[in-house]
Amino acid sequence: MILPAVLYVVALVGFPFVLSIYLAMSDAKIASNTYGFVGLDNVRGALESPTFRKSLGNTFIFTLVSQVLVLMLGKILATCLTKRFWGKSIFRFLILLPWVAPISLGTIGWKWMLDSLYSPVNWVLQATHLVGKNTWPMWFGEKDLAMAAVIAVHVWRLLPFATVIILAGLTSIPKEVDEAAEVDGAGFWSREFHIVLPLLRPILTVAGLFGIIFAFTDMTVIYVLTRGGPAQATQVLSSLAFFTGILGGDLAGGAAISLFLFPVLVVVAIVMLMVARRTEVA
């Protein structure tokens, strides 16, 4: 019965993974006919590169900051959605929209929203006298602003996913528990920190771990918005692997860079399995 699942994993996960290890240890180029074994030369080459080291740091910043924001905002939105209010179905639809829209399309929309010349965001800021005509923020041109912009767009993209997961967790908490605490005189924050969040911990962990995987491996947002600029300030491992392997033609170098994602993803996968197992036991 598990044969199809095994075949699926071998064909779509195992084979590409083994192939990437093989490529990373070879001298494969984009149009190579033969591959020579070079051991860990490509890994060494990556480690020597300042651009790689910068990208590694950026990857962690991008992932961790975006996940903290996604979980916090997701919890707030999910809490709102448990309440009754007028237009709730439209609100829920709008929240889900970024998740169902193609990621590249949404990101191109943001590229225009934050454009240096025609940004509606900057136009509104200027119209409200928050910035002057010649002092528009260059969202993708300043290092910190560029990182903030790519994180914000990534949060916008992942928020619906986290919200839906957390909402499912919230609706599974028996109402009696919350009501009993309220009768006992517990306020909103007290109930949040002593009842809701502890009960939500497994589901928050799952949302967070999925989010880490999505953020750690994503390159679309960065490729479309900044292409890693300015001066590599937003370059992450996945986009650097793409530039090196596909655009630069050094397949082996690109594969070696992408393999650095693996240890982190393994840890995340192990934690996910442990959480799933603990939830099952509970």
């Binding site: 240096s116 010349l117 041109g141 560029a146 300015p230």
Partner: peptide, 21 residues
């Protein structure tokens, strides 16, 4: 210049010049 020159793609300088900016 302004920091926008770090944000450009191949069509950006066209738009910049055509806009009169």
């Amino acid at each position: 210049e302004t920091a926008e020159v770090f944000t450009w793609d191949p069509s950006s300088n066209n738009r910049f010049f055509v806009s009169g900016k």
